[in-house]
C-alpha cells in the first residue's frame, strides 16, 4: 500500500477516538440467534461435510425411492389400467366393449407414443394383479395399441387374447373422450411446467417478479417481496437498473 493510503499518525489518532463495543444485550441477542439458527435447521442448503456426511447418500436414496414410488403410483392410477380382469370376467366385459367405438384422435396418438417407453417399463414390473400370469401367457396385443385407449383399456386388454383385429380397430372416433383426455394432459403438463419453474426460481427471476408487482402498482406486495428477497440473498448485489425497477420511488 502506498504512503498516501497508509498514514500512521492518522491511524494512531483514529485509535484515540475510542474502541467502542456493542452493548452486552446486543451481543447476547445475536449469539442467542446464532445458536437458535443451528439448533433449528443445521446447514439447510448445502451439501454437509464431516460428521453429517451420511446425510447426502441417505437423502439421495430417499429421493430416488420417492421418485420411483411416485412414478409407479401414477402408472397404476392411470384410468383404464386398474388391473386386468380375471378370465371369468372377460366374457362379461368383452361383449359390450366389442360394440363400443375404440377410435382415438391423432392428439391422443401422440401422447400415447410419448408415453410408450414408460408404459413398457411398467409392464415389466413384478407387482401385478392375480390375472397377470394368465395375461402374460396369452399373446398380447402390441403395447401402444392397448395404451392408445386408456378409457377403454380394461376392455381392450380383456379382449386382447381372443379378440380379432377388427375388435381393436377403430369403428368410429370418440372425439369427446379424446378431447377431454388431451385437455387434461396438456393442463397437467402446464401445471407441472409452472411448478418446476417456480421451484428453480433464481434471484434474477424473483427480481423480475418484484418489478412486475411494482409495475402493476402493487407496492405493498413488492415491498414485502423485496424485503424477503434481501433476507434470502443478503449478499446479492442488485444491479442499478433492476434496483430502480424494484424499489419504491
Amino acid at each position: 500500500m502506498t504512503e498516501d493510503t497508509r498514514d500512521s499518525t492518522v491511524s494512531a489518532r483514529y485509535r484515540e477516538l475510542g474502541a467502542e463495543e456493542p452493548p452486552r444485550a446486543l451481543d447476547d441477542a445475536i449469539l442467542a440467534a446464532s445458536r437458535r439458527a443451528v439448533q433449528s435447521h443445521p446447514a439447510p442448503l448445502v451439501a454437509p461435510t464431516g460428521r453429517r456426511a451420511w446425510f447426502v447418500p441417505l437423502a439421495a436414496v430417499a429421493v430416488l425411492v420417492l421418485a420411483v414410488a411416485v412414478t409407479l403410483h401414477m402408472q397404476v392410477d392411470q384410468p383404464g389400467e386398474e388391473g386386468v380382469p380375471a378370465p371369468a370376467e372377460r366374457a362379461q366385459v368383452t361383449a359390450p366393449e366389442q360394440s363400443r367405438p375404440q377410435a382415438r384422435p391423432k392428439a391422443a396418438e401422440a401422447v400415447r407414443q410419448e408415453r410408450a417407453p414408460v408404459h413398457t417399463a411398467r409392464t415389466d414390473a413384478p407387482a401385478r394383479s392375480a390375472a397377470e400370469p394368465e395375461a402374460r401367457k396369452a399373446p398380447r396385443p402390441p403395447e401402444p395399441k392397448s395404451f392408445a385407449a386408456p378409457t377403454a383399456a380394461p376392455a381392450a386388454r380383456a379382449v386382447a387374447p381372443g379378440a380379432s383385429a377388427p375388435a381393436m380397430a377403430p369403428a368410429a372416433p370418440a372425439p369427446a373422450v379424446a378431447a377431454a383426455k388431451s385437455a387434461a394432459d396438456s393442463s397437467s403438463a402446464d401445471a407441472l411446467a409452472k411448478r418446476a419453474d417456480t421451484a428453480v426460481e433464481t434471484p434474477e427471476k424473483e427480481l423480475e417478479r418484484i418489478a412486475l408487482l411494482r409495475r402493476e402498482g402493487k407496492h405493498e406486495d413488492a415491498d414485502k417481496a423485496l424485503a424477503e428477497f434481501r433476507k434470502r440473498y443478503p449478499d446479492f448485489r442488485i444491479p442499478a437498473p433492476m434496483l430502480e425497477r424494484v424499489e419504491r420511488r
Partner: peptide, 10 residues
C-alpha cells in the same frame, strides 16, 4: 449479523 446467520448455508 442476522444476515450472516441467515446466509451461513451459502
Amino acid at each position: 449479523w442476522m444476515r450472516v446467520i441467515e446466509a451461513r448455508a451459502r
